[in-house]
């Protein structure tokens, strides 16, 4: 039930955003999100509300960290 999906913001009107993943569009309320988004940002959507704006830099770092630490672990 804590399922929440990353969706891209395609439009913002007041406190409501239209968000999209694949072909699915939904409306999401922005009253809870910690950082107000722009169009093109990705939000984590849970039960009709955006609960988080994904930090692209953190997402990139996680993936790089995976790769680096694993090179070390597997070769070491």
């Amino acid at each position: 039930m804590c399922l929440a999906v990353p969706m891209e913001v395609v439009e913002i009107k007041g406190n409501m955003a239209t968000v999209q993943v694949g072909d699915v569009q939904r409306r999401a309320c922005l009253d809870l999100v910690d950082t107000f988004p722009d169009v093109g940002d990705y939000l984590i959507i849970h039960a009709g509300y955006a609960i988080h704006r994904i930090d692209p830099e953190e997402a990139r770092k996680t993936l790089e960290y995976f790769k680096e630490i694993l090179e070390y672990e597997v070769s070491g």
């Binding site: 809870l32 910690d34 984590i44 609960i51 988080h52 930090d55 953190e58 997402a59 770092k61 996680t62």
Partner: peptide, 14 residues
Amino acid sequence: QYTRAVHPQGNPRA
């Protein structure tokens, strides 16, 4: 681990 969606302080607004 889930740093792209979790800050140590959580979501203060929520």
